[in-house]
Nucleic acid binder design. Structure first.
Lengths: 158, 158
DNA sequence: ATTGAAACAAGCTAGTA
DNA sequence: TACTAGCTTGTTTCAAT
């Protein structure tokens, strides 16, 4: 589904601009990428339809939400049966502290990023909700000092 | 900077809606949260000014960008001097493969998420660009099977 | 701090090349 | 597929509360 070659220079420019600012108005976007507004509109719709754009989201300052402490929890889940794993994932995503969940290949199976009000809250989350689950074999906690996300992703010249 | 109590119900509703859909029109947003369009506009501006909103970004399907393989690189950097660490971070963020960078407390110092066209590309990145750097003591590679981000973050009732 | 209304600007849908 | 034009719709400012 979708080769990078499906994307011409205008598409790539649109991807770049809307990753930088999702609230950019269509007319302005059209001016920046050098096409007519109607064309820009159709391009954005097409990129959405083709699944190249997966969403448009505001990002928030978690500290301003009263959750200044972030941690990465490296979790080992056993046995690795489909039903158990699915239930675990659902549970994790239901927790309001969860920011993201990665299923990885390595010594541990899942990396969960959480944001909490304080370390006491983190401790309670670990003890009362994660370690108490039978399928959770181990949890390694890494405090997050700093998180930097690249705001713009594009194709890579292989 | 910014207690959660600074946010009333309307603010929280605005945060929720724009995290779900950053391209929501102001008029529609106003209708959903139950205020006049002019009020909604002022609230959004205020949340931006106060740094509660940190950005509005389109998210893209990395596979559609020709980068279907994601990995998490757990990196140990030594010595842990300010200048060396800063140079390392800058270098990592300059690489087009980089999706995000976390500085953590744990056995390793950095977790780097990368998205690449294939595993050969990943191997080359590791050998030619990461392991060749003198400050990089070790790299542990975890392949990412699945990544799920919670689209909406809110305050947590402590 | 919120609102309603007016002036302004953008979005959208044709019809055409 | 992209563009121009014109009608529709949304955005923004501001005086008043």
């Amino acid at each position: 589904m979708g080769q990078p070659s499906d994307l011409d220079a205008v598409d790539v420019a649109i991807l770049r601009e809307l990753q930088k600012d999702a609230r950019l108005q269509n007319k302005e976007l059209a001016a920046i990428v050098g096409v007519a507004p109607s064309t820009a509109l159709e391009r954005v719709r097409s990129l959405r339809r083709r699944g190249v754009f997966t969403g448009f989201h505001a990002t928030v300052n978690l500290a301003a939400l009263g959750r200044p402490v972030s941690a990465l929890l490296s979790v080992r889940v056993r046995p690795h049966r489909q039903q158990i794993v699915a239930a675990f994932k659902t549970f994790v995503l239901e927790q309001p502290e969860t920011v993201s969940l990665l299923h990885v290949a390595g010594p541990d199976d899942y990396l969960i990023q959480v944001a909490v009000p304080d370390t006491t809250h983190l401790q309670q989350l670990l003890i009362n909700r994660l370690l108490s689950r039978p399928e959770v074999v181990s949890v390694n906690t890494m405090l997050v000092f700093e998180a930097v996300g690249q705001p713009v992703q594009g194709p890579i010249g292989s």
